[in-house]
């Protein structure tokens, strides 16, 4: 008969080097921000923990945001790094309730990059800028030695103007609010993975990259009292909800069955062992708004093709503050945690 001697390993040394997951949008990213960046750079605008800073400049209310784009492959189904660079910053401004006006673009190019790739990316950036009605007004280019970059890295920064009187920020979220998601989730992450890992699916899954100011503006014009907006990029819906729950000191509950995910994305996630609630999107947001306006908001959003899948997925509560919980399809209830580390494919 086997004798059991239960035992376990010594703790691994962690924290002394940067890991990929520090940029993954999950817990390690949050730790990096809270333990390293905020203590050094902390100021009122940063402490608001929003997608961008909302500032007062000579009486005008301005939003300012920046983001860097490092994606492999540079071109993927439904877009390329240029689309992400423009839409991403436009969306960060839109999430502050600001009309995006001006962008900057900084390019870090790797020696040997085919000029045709750069042309494709730049042409996409122009198209996206036109679609989002922003001007690209300043820029910079650097070239690094071959092997020291990954083709193209792009940084964009953007300025927008806040025309609404609403304070669209985590602190405005109230118990009783509804959580509306602007469209079906997970397409971007799955599109990237499908080309990165050379996986082919029966149906074509294209990235959802898109500018989001138009639908946000439509909600504002319809007089909907938006409390907070958050785009559902790295870490997906679950990370965004956890961030808001933490920042606003409220609980959030979502119903698994009401979260919109398209059939092809669900299928791909089932096969790959990924959870669509954690997969990145580049053209989706969550809106926190009074419950009485949820239905009207969903209807208004669905008039935009990129928001065709909009749905009310949950609500804000006073209890279980700081956490997100999920009612499962079969009627169980559990915590919906933040992504920890990168989502990785599993063994079997």
């Amino acid at each position: 008969m086997t004798q059991f001697k239960p035992a376990c390993p010594l703790p691994a040394a962690t924290g002394e080097t940067v890991l990929l997951a520090h940029g993954g949008g999950g817990k390690l990213t949050r730790q990096l921000i809270e333990n390293l960046f905020l203590p050094v750079f902390g100021c009122a605008a940063l402490e608001a923990r929003h997608d961008g800073a909302r500032l007062q400049v000579n009486g005008a209310r301005v939003a300012f945001s920046t983001d860097s784009y490092v994606v492999r492959p540079l071109v993927f189904p439904g877009g390329n790094i240029g689309d992400l660079a423009v839409n991403g910053t436009v969306n960060d401004l839109a999430m502050c309730g600001a009309r995006p006006l001006y962008l900057s673009a900084g390019f870090i190019l790797e020696e040997g990059l085919p000029m045709v790739t750069l042309r494709t990316v730049v042409a996409s950036m122009r198209q996206c800028a036109e679609r989002a009605n922003v001007d690209l007004v300043t820029g910079d280019t650097k070239v690094v030695d071959r092997g020291k970059g990954d083709g193209i890295f792009i940084n964009t920064a953007g300025i927008g103007i806040v025309e609404t009187a609403l304070e669209i920020e985590p602190a405005s979220v109230r118990p009783g609010d509804s959580v509306v998601v602007s469209g079906s989730l997970g397409a971007h992450g799955v599109a990237i993975l499908s080309v990165r890992e050379g996986l082919e699916f029966e149906s074509f899954i294209a990235s959802d990259t898109a500018p989001l100011w138009e639908p946000v503006d439509a909600l504002l014009q319809a007089g909907i009292e938006l409390h907070c907006l958050r785009d559902l990029t790295r870490g997906g819906l679950s990370s965004a909800l956890n961030e808001i729950a933490g920042a606003a000191g409220v609980g959030v509950t979502i119903d698994e069955a009401s979260v919109p995910v398209s059939e092809p994305v669900r299928g791909a996630c089932e096969i790959l062992g990924l959870d669509p609630l954690y997969v990145a999107n580049e053209g989706r947001f969550a809106a926190f708004l009074p419950a009485r306006e949820a239905e009207r908001s969903v209807e208004r959003l669905r008039q935009f093709p990129i928001c065709a899948g909009a749905a009310c997925v949950g609500r804000v509560e006073a209890d279980h503050a700081g956490t997100v919980s999920l009612n499962s399809r079969i009627g169980g209830r559990r915590v919906l945690d933040m992504l920890s580390g990168e989502q990785l494919p599993r063994i079997c």
Partner: peptide, 21 residues
């Protein structure tokens, strides 16, 4: 390796940390 193996701690580090190194 399959994905879930690379985060598991060995006696001093994981495969993920070996990758970072």
């Amino acid at each position: 390796s399959f994905g879930d193996m690379i985060r598991v701690p060995g006696s001093s580090k994981s495969l993920l940390e070996a990758k970072a190194a």
